[in-house]
């Protein structure tokens, strides 16, 4: 049984426009029939160009948006049938790392407030001392110096902020991490550090990860399997190595060709 299974997920947005006397109702099919599965402990890379529906898909899995059609099954439990309080209790099992570490951290909360709030969602019974231990442990896990615990997000660099965001995602001890373009807002020199960190965390903590990116070279580095998304649909799925060497779909071939040659030599 796959750890996470998406069956024919669709998400259509209707955009109402028009004036007082005339109106038109256009439907945007952001995600249009996606079926995917991730095995436990694996990293699935999802590639596709901007606007192909990757981020919408990630929000659907995170239960931040409701799908128009289809089911999301996590460990055999259909999330789409749950009511809102059941969803809230299940949320801690899946957490997200966002693209923009400048927008994903509350600017008015210190590292301490951000992390302790996230830890307490899973372990509300902790006393102050135990909470401190947990916060420091998390910070060490993501490679943040514990002396920065009282600092605010704007006092950190992009890479450090993304580490805080990763720590927050790990705080409720989730089983599934959805990483939506976690490195695309970072300097190239920082990208590989964060990628290695994510890879290590998945291995050490036995996590399952959906890694979303528009950059095939990044996905190839981290993912076990790769799915290629194009205009709201999955056009090709396969083991990372074989997909890279023997792409079937025309769009995958174009993506591969667009990776700079210099990088592909490395």
């Amino acid at each position: 049984m796959p750890f996470l299974e998406l069956n024919d997920i669709k998400k259509h947005f209707s955009t109402k426009s028009g004036g007082l006397f005339s109106s038109s109702n256009e439907i945007v099919k952001a995600v249009n029939g996606v079926s995917l599965s991730i095995e436990e402990g694996k990293i699935l890379g999802l590639v596709g160009e901007s606007g192909c529906g990757k981020s919408t898909l990630s929000r659907l899995i995170m239960q931040l948006l409701e799908p128009t059609h289809g089911s999301i099954v996590l460990e055999g439990q259909n999330l789409t049938n749950l009511n809102s309080s059941e969803v809230r209790s299940r949320r801690l099992d899946f957490q997200m790392i966002f693209q923009d570490p400048y927008a994903s951290l509350n600017p008015r909360m210190t590292v301490w407030s951000t992390l302790s709030e996230a830890i307490l969602t899973r372990k509300p019974q902790l006393n102050k001392e135990e909470l401190k231990q947990n916060v420091v442990k998390l910070m060490e896990m993501v490679g943040l110096d514990k002396q920065y615990v009282r600092k605010y997000p704007h006092e950190f660099s992009g890479g450090q902020r993304q580490r805080i965001a990763i720590a927050r995602a790990l705080a409720p001890e989730p089983k599934l991490i959805i990483a939506d373009e976690p490195v695309s807002a970072l300097d190239v020199s920082i990208q590989s550090q964060i990628l290695n960190l994510l890879k290590d965390l998945v291995n050490n903590l036995g996590l399952t990860m959906l890694f979303i990116s528009h950059d095939l070279s990044v996905v190839r580095y981290i993912a076990d399997r790769i799915a290629v998304m194009y205009y709201g649909k999955i056009v090709e799925t396969g083991e990372a190595e074989s997909l890279m060497e023997n792409p079937q779909h025309q769009y995958t071939k174009e993506l591969l060709e667009s990776v700079p040659k210099v990088l592909s030599l490395v």
Partner: peptide, 25 residues
């Protein structure tokens, strides 16, 4: 903003999200 989505993902209550994460900003 994404930090509100993150707060929602943590299963925090609507009141807490509104008055701790949104209003101070």
């Amino acid at each position: 903003q994404e930090f509100v989505e993150a707060a929602t993902s943590l299963g925090l209550s609507k009141m807490r999200i509104l008055f701790r994460h949104i209003v101070p900003n």
